[in-house]
Amino acid sequence: MKKAMIYSEEHKKYLKKQRLKIALVWLLRIGLLALLLGFWELSTALGWVDPFIMSSPSRVCKTIGSLYNDGTLFYHIGVTLLETLIGFVIAVVLGVLIALALWWSETVRRVLEPYIVVLNALPKIALGPLIIIWFGTGNKAIIFMTVLVGLIVAIMHMLSAFIATDKNKILLLKSMGASKLQILRKLVIPSSFASFISMLKVNVGMAWIGSIMGEYIVSRAGLGYLLVYGGQVFKLDLVMTAIFILCILAAGMYFLVVLLEKVLVKNTES
């Protein structure tokens, strides 16, 4: 129900103050960024630090320009983005399905628990050589690495959410004669919604770790490839450029999840 939109003077003042606060925070955020970039540019321009090692904002812009002129800018971005997104989706879907299966059967859960714990603790990069041999040096290996990094996190996150379902609400449904499938559909899944969103947020980060790590070990294209290549030939401009683009992409993907959350939460209201 909407409340009437008639406010007292005092409340209007309060709202104005709040808006000012938000504006101030944004101003400071952007100001800080400008300050950092400006300082970076200035310190290389004045020769305080060596631009060959530190690069600089203007050099990053130039590098982006030349990559664009080569026609390779969007190619590299596309390659990495695709690997990341495919890996992300597979890890999330598979993770949720496996978590559901583990919720369903306590026996299976108890049998598999130590395996999951070990796989979670294992640094996935240790599997690098195996991945190269099994999947070759193409996209498949990188996507596999991305899935591997995100999958266990997704499983553990969702399983703990499913298990944390309110016991009394389960009792309530049982007293209505609900089957296990009904309990799952009417209660366990909808009540895990908030955890699902937070799992997505965590897994955005995991997917980028996975894809860049994958490109580190087997790459012929992509942002991870630019990073490795730039490092090897001492083109720090290229390294900084790749990092800069990664920042933008990762932030963009995160905000997409936040957007998704806002759209979905409208229908659930908590």
């Binding site: 309110d166 009394n168 609400k169 009792l171 309530l172 007293s175 209505m176 009417k186 209660l187 909808p190 009540s191 919604f193 659930t268 209201e269 908590s270």
Partner: peptide, 13 residues
Amino acid sequence: FGYMLQKDQLFQW
């Protein structure tokens, strides 16, 4: 039977 518990146990979504 109809079962009513301590808390309302309404589903918030």
